[in-house]
Design a protein around this nucleic acid. Structure first.
Lengths: 241, 241
DNA sequence: CGCGGAGTTGAGATTGTTCAAGGATTGTGG
DNA sequence: CCACAATCCTTGAACAATCTCAACTCCGCG
């Protein structure tokens, strides 16, 4: 039952993803849009399972393709995932970084990033050359914290069923923001064990709960993708957003 | 079995608490310490159960006495607590506030606060008059995010027993920082239902789990206070930071 | 063809919840 | 000083959610 994945973005259009992400927050000036599109540093590929690292000289990066996560190792082989990092997201040490920006960032699939430090350039007065971009980046950091709070609610106050539904709905929303998901269909490259590490559930129970979602007609799933066929119903049912 | 609570702070010494909190992060200049001690605005008392609010003109406040929390209402009568706010902590809208700074802040006991906006004063060049204080406040905001991450770990990766132990150890550490706890003894004005709302547990299970901690010789508890008699053992046992 | 990873299924153990009732403590008014 | 209500803690028993272990399937890949 192989279905096509979500719309794929041509390699040369990758930079549209962070642009879309930022534009969802505030309109960028044409010059700022051009500055993003003009990024032409080397693209760095991080293999699935590896920690994302960058040279000391760089401050932050855009994720152009692939999924990663923020996580903490609790014990050998046991970890808690805090947040997922999706195509179009920003990683690195923004000015005023918080602890979450410093937590280790691990590739869950093969991940392509590009250095975006150039966008933080300042003029001779010390003002940002692209204030709109810097403001958008600051608000993106705010969204990370907001998601962390949502995650606490999922873990503390939701059943496995509701928490899983919330997670999928949140991911759909984030992917839709950058054009990678629409009308319930989205890429989904995570194994059940990773989902379990996000939600504090065992791999087996993730499988059973997903099966329940399927049985309720709320989910179709295949290798690397999934569909929420009645996404509005589901959102209402679990009181999403 | 009434035991004395933790050392009480005389009313006129309340401002030492935020001072201690900030000093744990970075040494403040003598002038900055004096500026904190010189705060003399009216003290505002918020009744247990009420939301903490402040006039529009003020930016942030010190909590001088009492416990409060960050929380979100999930459904009527159902809420998730994100973090506790203890004496000496800062609340309000710092510059660069994140979503958690905006979340509703509810008094869990009677709470006394004082306006500290004056400390954010700037000179004619636009520089902060008390840069050490502002830097400390920024790092305190970072600690909030760090605690939010710890909370995710407690909720997602810990058993009730371990999570509860972690919570008590964290509170002891924070209270000890401002001189309100030492060698395992600390004030503890929370009911079990509140603890349950923090940890995503039912009130009944909180009671049973605390009983288990008592049975293991790790906890003595009374009205408004508790003792962790073998705090180092406990910290080791549950792998506390 | 065989192998390994990922998903599924079943059975039993554990953990945590719910409901309900009983005891202790505290504050209040008579 | 006592009676009363309110609140919080404790306990028991039945139930539900989730975990663990283990076996089995399915599929992609060398």
């Amino acid at each position: 039952v192989a279905e096509p994945a979500a719309p794929s973005i041509p390699r040369k259009g990758y930079l549209e993803l962070p642009l879309l992400r930022m534009s969802k927050i505030a309109a960028l000036a044409p010059a700022e849009q051009a500055a993003v599109r003009a990024l032409n540093g080397p693209r760095r590929t991080t293999a699935k399972g590896s920690v994302l690292v960058w040279p000391e000289t760089s401050q932050f990066h855009f994720v152009l393709d692939g999924w990663a996560c923020r996580q903490r190792e609790i014990a050998p082989g046991r970890r808690q995932l805090f947040d997922l990092i999706l195509p179009g997201d920003v990683v690195g040490r923004l000015p005023d970084a918080g602890p979450i920006d410093d937590s280790s960032c691990v590739a869950l699939t093969s991940v392509i990033t590009i250095d975006a430090t150039a966008l933080a350039r300042r003029d001779v007065q010390g003002q940002f050359v692209h204030p709109g971009i810097m403001s958008a980046l600051g608000q993106l950091r705010g969204k990370v914290q907001r998601r962390l709070m949502d995650h606490v609610v999922r873990l503390g106050a939701h059943s496995a069923y509701d928490g899983l539904a919330h997670l999928l709905l949140e991911l759909h929303e984030r992917l839709a923001d950058v054009g990678l998901a629409s009308s319930g269909r989205m890429p989904f490259p995570l194994g059940y064990e990773r989902v379990g590490e996000l939600l504090g559930l065992s791999e087996v129970h993730v499988g059973r709960t997903l099966a329940k979602l399927k049985a309720d007609g709320h989910l179709e799933i295949g290798p690397g993708w999934l569909v929420l066929p009645r996404i509005d119903d589901l959102a209402r049912q679990v009181h999403y957003a």
